[in-house]
Design a binder for these strands. Structure first.
Length: 577
DNA sequence: GAGTTTGAAACT
DNA sequence: CAGTTTCAAACTC
């Protein structure tokens, strides 16, 4: 904490408006209107939406820290279909600290207003909190979660860095916040902590998923070929996302009941958040890119460079926030998915996997595929391999021998599923037709389409989509990890659960035959899948976990989300909240 | 730790 | 969109 180079220049945190304002906000009202959730944590949800509303969910708190085994992290037991729930809950929980309840109210840093702070951007806490939030605040926040580990982590002197690219528009971004601590990223640790508290699951870096998967695989001897990568080893603990949590090697078996998921337990949430951040544990060695290109792992991961980095002329620092954001913007303009997770999980997830844990589910594949020529996809040069996933037909690799699944194998699977896909497509079409009919019949505002009609296949009304990419992936990885874990422990006897996982398992009733599996899930990996087009422009979006969870009802009751635009505008403009 | 190899990212 | 260059990680020694 020496020179605090940048204390978020831009926005001066408007004194946190008291909670009441919140409730008056349209968003709040909207949330309130959501029946099921309402009682739950409306505020949180609001935040969730906010945070999600950013297009690419870019940055996340990413801690660049050494691996700290997280002792306190109790492995969260989860049942396969609980994963989604957990994630959703995480989102909800994320904002817990923001709620003025109890202890937090007193905490300056954590005051609700911050959350609402327009400048803060969609993400609830953001820089404001960070900045305002003193270490104490942060601690408290974290404490609220009972997340002691986080604190420890910080003390471990691995600062967290986070780039809130999404907030680009907003002056005070997480990034700023990060900077806020002290110019040095290190200093940011404290500030960032608050952030992390805020954006746990969501914050998971897009690319982290791959890492997560990788780690999952790596960490599970049984699960897959073991890849020994320095980084992996090092980062593993850190990189693990919520998924990891589940899998948590040294810990008790997951609680299959899933009753006591972290979601519910604030403490665990803290852990999750931590995990989420972990995903971004990166360090680079850039010399010419100034850490402002995707060459830079840190930048690509949505995190600021930090001490461990050996980069030169690094601009990927809080003090250069503007530049970072601008650069990111440019890159995204060129390729909207540039910061999207490289590894994407398809709905069919484990189905093809069978018991062969060495291979990743065909559904988990590299977004773009690799182009390996000489490595045979057996080295980390290969992004697929690096991500712990098999190659797919998207890959243009030569002589693929990917231990996680070869391209040719994938192709076979693809073809097999193709027919399935078509059937689903058909169903989808029918569903949409039906939907149109319904709309004609009743011009009711909200999608009241009966669930029974594959409605779930239709993009959720809930336009959260916009910003859930990483989140979603996280979920995917989560599922993967769960599976691995369960398998490892011999808990899973029936593949069925996973096979039907996403949709079937969770919302069987909502789906028509044949539509089940891919419903909520977009097979972004499958070129053949038209469903790929379902997701909104933002592209990354994949149906929220919620679509697959028992609480789906909640989502169903959600009318089309008021207006992301408004939300966004809110960010830019005066805050209503 | 230096040098090489590799393939993604960026550029043309 | 294909070809080339640049880049930094991964790898080898």
């Amino acid at each position: 904490m020496d020179s605090t180079p940048k204390k978020k220049p831009t926005t001066n945190p408007p004194p946190p408006p008291p909670l009441p304002k919140f409730e008056d906000s349209p968003v709040f009202n909207f949330i309130n209107s959501l029946s099921p959730i309402k009682p739950l944590k409306s505020i949180h949800i609001t935040q969730t939406f906010n945070s999600i509303s950013f297009p690419s969910l870019p940055v996340f708190t990413s801690p660049k820290r050494p691996n700290f085994p997280n002792p306190s992290r109790s492995s969260p037991p989860v049942s396969s279909n609980e994963g989604a729930v957990i994630i959703m809950d995480q989102l909800l929980e994320i904002f817990v600290p923001e709620i003025p309840t109890a202890d937090h109210a007193a905490t300056p840093g954590m005051q609700p207003p911050e959350t609402v702070n327009p400048d803060a951007g969609e993400v609830g806490i953001s820089s404001e909190a960070m900045e305002l939030g003193s270490d104490e605040a942060e601690d408290e926040n974290c404490d609220s979660f009972g997340n002691k580990p986080l604190l420890n982590l910080q003390s471990g002197n691995m600062p967290r860095r986070c780039l809130d690219f999404e907030m680009a528009g907003t002056p005070n971004t997480a990034a700023t916040a990060t900077a806020g601590g002290d110019g040095s990223i290190r200093g940011s640790s404290s500030s960032s902590s608050s952030f992390r508290c805020t954006l746990p699951g969501i914050g998971l870096h897009l690319n982290a998923i791959a890492a997560t998967l990788k780690h999952e695989n790596l960490s599970h001897p049984s699960s897959s070929a073991s890849i020994s990568s320095p980084n992996s080893v090092q980062d593993q603990p850190l990189m693990t996302s919520s998924a990891t949590e589940i899998e948590n090697p040294s810990h008790e078996p997951a609680n299959l009941n899933g009753e006591n998921l972290n979601l519910i337990n604030p403490k665990k949430n803290g852990t999750l958040m931590e995990n989420a951040e972990i995903g971004a544990c990166k360090r680079c060695n850039c010399k010419k890119s100034k850490c402002l290109k995707l060459y830079c792992e840190c930048f690509a991961a949505g995190v600021y460079c930090i001490d461990p980095c050996s980069c030169q002329e690094c601009f990927n620092q809080p003090i250069h926030e503007a530049m970072v954001l601008e650069t990111r913007r440019q890159i995204e303009s060129r390729n909207p998915l540039a910061f999207a997770p490289k590894v994407i999980m398809n709905s069919d997830s484990f189905s093809e996997l069978g018991d062969d844990s060495n291979k990743t589910p065909a559904s988990a594949r590299h977004k773009r595929g690799c182009n390996c020529k000489k490595s045979s996809c057996l080295k980390k040069y290969c992004e697929c391999y690096q991500g712990g996933v098999g190659c797919s037909i998207n890959c243009r690799c030569e002589g693929c021998k990917n231990a996680f699944g070869r391209k040719d194998e994938s192709a076979v699977i693809e073809t097999d599923t193709k027919q399935e896909e078509e059937g689903r497509e058909h169903c989808l079409k029918n569903a949409e037709v039906q939907k149109d009919e319904d709309q004609q019949n009743s011009n009711s505002a909200v999608p009241s389409t009966p669930l029974g009609r594959c409605r779930s296949l239709i993009p959720l009304p809930f336009q959260l989509k916009r910003k859930l990419p990483s989140f979603i992936d996280d979920e995917s990885s989560y599922r993967l990890s769960v599976r691995f874990k369960l398998e490892k422990q011999g808990i899973i006897q029936t593949e069925t659960k996973f096979e039907k996982t996403p949709s079937a398992d969770v919302m069987p009733e909502t789906i028509c035959n044949g539509c089940s599996s891919s419903t909520g899930v977009v097979k972004s990996v499958s070129p053949n899948s038209k469903r790929i087009t379902l997701p909104p422009p933002q592209g990354d979006f994949r149906p929220l976990p919620s679509t697959r969870i028992g609480r789906k009802l909640i989502l169903q009751s959600i009318p089309s989300f008021p207006s992301l635009t408004n939300l966004n505008s809110r960010v830019n403009g005066p805050s209503e909240l």
